[in-house]
Design a protein around this nucleic acid. Structure first.
Lengths: 221, 221
DNA sequence: GAGAAAATTAACAGAAAATTAACATAATAG
DNA sequence: CTATTATGTTAATTTTCTGTTAATTTTCTC
């Protein structure tokens, strides 16, 4: 599930937001201090960051600017009591994705969070993936087809997961290499083919889940 | 530059927004009527759609819902006079990416547009192209005509995409060669003809989507 | 450190697509 | 109306890409 960080020093507001979001099922972390919040956010692991502007030790604008300079791509929603055009524009300029003024309705905030998550396609961090009669348990690295456990090697498993997450999209060998092997890899891109072959063989010799798009790459449909 | 569509029946507001956005350098189209606006938006060619809620013939909520059901992935900003929690939440539920209530500051709107453009991957904007009864899914490299999937080779696919993006414009063989084959290519420019022929054959032997402009090149209308 | 498993490289055959070439047909200038 | 040129169409050829297998290297396990 989506990871959300709340950086807000007004405890009443922080608790309210946290409660609502946990109800929906998000994983929520909270931080009252600006600098501590920045350090957490800097990890890059959050899908959404709810960021108050006036904070002790480090203010929201600076946090946002710093995070963006570090290429943190979390969806940042700024939160403030000041409804001032200058601030709003500045907020977006330092890299915020949305800007909400207090008082706001909790439902509006959650709606905006959902919209942010939807736009970025990050809500797919679920443990169990399903694709046709195939079920993938990410935490246990198990794949079940029908009722039979399919033995996949690590690379085959990673490849399958990546294909399923990007279901429908054609993925080039380069995309697969950078995402599954790491940028540094500069070997032959034909490795991908071999793993695709083995995956097809293990999943189902008949059905062709995995389609080849000649000249481009592979996709699962 | 980014393509923006404004669907708004209040002329004063529409003009103001259009003026501001053109100043920045965006390509702006405007539509006063709901249904006409929907039809334009449905093309999928806009990066951002600014959508009023109360419109003649088709309301903003319905437009938004319909567009999302058609996989149009433009960044949709809803615009309304009603600052009502229920509406905001509903707006996000039908697929809006942002929601702004009137009166709003023009600078805030442009800031929100920029944030929307920034947040999305630029390649998303043109993922789904539509042309008559043909739908092109660029990320999956699929072409659907009516309800039938048309099997195209890579070159045919690229050619179709390029023609549709430059709909109406006549493209010379040289233009097509440099854009689809790369500058270095110095073979016979008649290759284009063969691919055009095959494309016509596969898309529809009857209808002539692709027009020949003798002495110049080809265009799709 | 030996043995097993997995990952990678290499090689080749077959299939698909791109390109060339050749001829047929249609459009246009004179 | 004819000669010329541009385009349509088909077939043949060449090139490229992928599937597949086997051999080699690396990693892991005991």
């Amino acid at each position: 599930m989506a990871q959300i960080l709340i950086i807000e020093d007004e405890k009443s507001i922080q608790r309210m937001i946290e409660y609502d979001l946990k109800q929906i099922g998000y994983n929520v972390d909270s931080e009252l201090d600006g600098f501590e919040g920045y350090k957490k956010a800097s990890s890059g692991k959050y899908d959404v960051i709810i960021l108050d502007l006036m904070l002790p030790n480090m203010n929201g604008m600076d946090i946002c600017k710093k995070l963006r300079s570090e290429e943190v791509s979390s969806y940042i929603i700024m939160l403030t009591a000041i409804d001032d055009e200058y601030n709003v524009v500045q907020g977006f300029e330092v890299g915020a994705d949305d800007y909400v003024t207090k008082p706001f309705s909790p439902r509006e905030l959650t709606a905006r969070i959902k919209a942010g998550l939807r736009g970025r396609n990050v809500d797919k961090k679920t443990d169990v993936l399903k694709y046709n009669d195939i079920t993938i348990f990410q935490s246990s690295y198990e794949v079940v087809k029908g009722k039979i456990i399919v033995d996949l090697t690590l690379k085959e498993f990673e490849l399958l997961v990546f294909l399923v997450i990007n279901k429908g999209k054609v993925l080039s060998r380069e995309q697969l290499l950078t995402n599954l092997w790491g940028f540094t890899y500069d070997g032959d891109s034909r490795i991908v083919d071999v793993h695709i072959f083995k995956l097809r063989e293990k999943l189902d010799p008949q059905a062709d889940y995995i389609k080849t798009v000649r000249g481009v790459g592979y996709k699962i449909i």
